[in-house]
Design a protein around this nucleic acid. Sequence first.
RNA 1: GGGGGCGUAGCUCAAUUGGUUAGAGUCCCAGAUUGUCGAUCUGGUUGUUGCGGGUUCGAGUCCCGUCGCUCCCGCCA
Length: 603
Amino acid sequence: MHLYRTHTCGELRKSDDGRTARVSGWVYRKRDHGSLLFIDLRDHYGVTQVVVRPDRSFFEEAQKLKPESVITVTGRVEPRTPDTVNSSLATGEIEVVADTLVVESVADTLPLQVAGEEDGPEDLRLRYRFLDLRRERMHKNVLMRSRLVADLRRRMTAHGFAEFQTPILTCSSPEGARDYLVPSRVHPGKFYALPQAPQLFKQLLMISGFDRYFQIAPCFRDEDARADRSPGEFYQLDIEMSFVTQDDVFAVVEDVISGVFGDFSDWTCDKPPFRRLAWREAMEKYGSDKPDLRNPIVMCDVTDIFRGSEFKAFAAAVDGGATVRAIPVTGVGVADKPRSFYDKLVEFAKEAGGKGLAYLVWQGDSVKGPIAKYIDQARMASIVERCAARAGDAVFFVCDKPKDASRISGDIRTKLGRDLELLEPNTYRFCWVVDFPMYEFDEEERRVVFSHNPFSMPQGGMSALTGKDPLDVLAYQYDIVCNGVELSSGAIRNHSPEIMLKAFEIAGYTREEVEEKFSFLLNAFRLGAPPHGGIAPGVDRMVMLLAQESNIREIIAFPMNQRAQDLMMGAPSAVSERQLRELHIRLNLPKEKAATTLVAPKV
RNA sequence: GGGGGCGUAGCUCAAUUGGUUAGAGUCCCAGAUUGUCGAUCUGGUUGUUGCGGGUUCGAGUCCCGUCGCUCCCGCCA
């Protein structure tokens, strides 16, 4: 008989009746009846009830076992009587009556409880992550991630993609996020950088003729965390394809994503082709470049209606270049909400940076609201028509500079959707946001800058760059969005050195600067580069959506906290003088702020 | 770098407008208990109310500072 087990804790069934079995695992729960003891024994595969009878020599030892101790039990598999069957357990028709019991590892009192659904404080959970990961939900999340990654590989391979590895120690890139730097011992004063993404390598692989690249790629960015953004490192399903149009990229991603979401969740999921929204349309209708389409509220522009109106606050702002966005809330009887509901929303709009929030409420035959008396009949009719407002509805109005109007109205739309519970339940809604502007005007620096990826191909190519107002040039740049979460950005790349030089020139870079900064890429483009494009959906975010977690740390086995510390390992940590000396580094620490030392748990 | 929220027993939380000895569940400890499966029952231990200062006759509660966690803005081509 095997030293530790003949069966896992999720394996034994009624058909094993009479068999002698050996199982090993963690003491999950104990029910001590004094002269009879039940132990729920748990391993990765499930839970099996072990019965310890009082005549056994180890009965007292078993009674004293602490939860999460590891034991090996050998005994007879017996069927349970009908009234003691536990239907919520896969092994609930049987139990193992213990003949021998070996304690493999004694557990001290736990800092966190493994049984039960309750989350402990997050710093403790991170410090004792190995305990936290024993909990059912976390164990499930991490496992789902594993299965998802395997599934992504299978699907990509089936689409004819080859998986590549690219360097982790590479060089700092001039554009983009802050790099993590690694000092070189051999080259004093020089540094490697961890890749923010394998962007340039995958483009070079296309130039090498590999045609279809993918990688479950680690990416490193030294930027601050968010609930959906883990600090330090994250993973992307990195994809690049040669001789493709935007539609070819979409077709692959739609198949992979819809396949994965269909297989890994019971929720309703959009079938390909996913809806496409122009960036401008997304900003106007949803006030966001990552709209949550589960929210039925669709906004519209009503700037023209307020221009020259008696509502002077808006009319004057419109003359000064502001736009007015209408946020219609229709068909849910929002007109019956108390005054406080509207007051709170006005307050919310101000906190979001708005100057205020105007609104109209259709109660029965009359229109009410603070601005109603300033709107003449013709204008009111236009509003009613454009917003499809009926009795019981309300429309909110935000007036601000276009960029702020979008953001503020978008925040209000999100809040209304959530507070009024308008979101479609148990559904994944996907869309592509396309036609991003190539450039935008930086108000602070008073100049034209790249709005997203400088390596994207401008729509219309060279003639668009030379013939159009730069702010009107669109890029072959696209995002895929699910339930308000940006899953991924991608682009058809600019593979022409001349167009690239021109594109950078518009953003204020001289030819010489570009030739110097991106020499190897330009040189590669000059030696035969296929038209190519790609995308890189975030693996962590996919798992987060599928596991229905609202925080990305819940689906990462060993995440860092928001301040980019690993509380379990104690990273980042001080290093020895000798290590620094070898790397030719002398510390120049900020004054007063003493370095916080992290203490790893004594385990 | 900036703003919001939170911080009470090992853990999850409560504590009236600032009022008497800071409570409950869980965990832990002891005892009882032969069919439980979140076992049950009895009893018990556990507190610098994050830390420091202030206001007050009196502070878990109010004020200031600080530390920690978290959410957001900036940032993330």
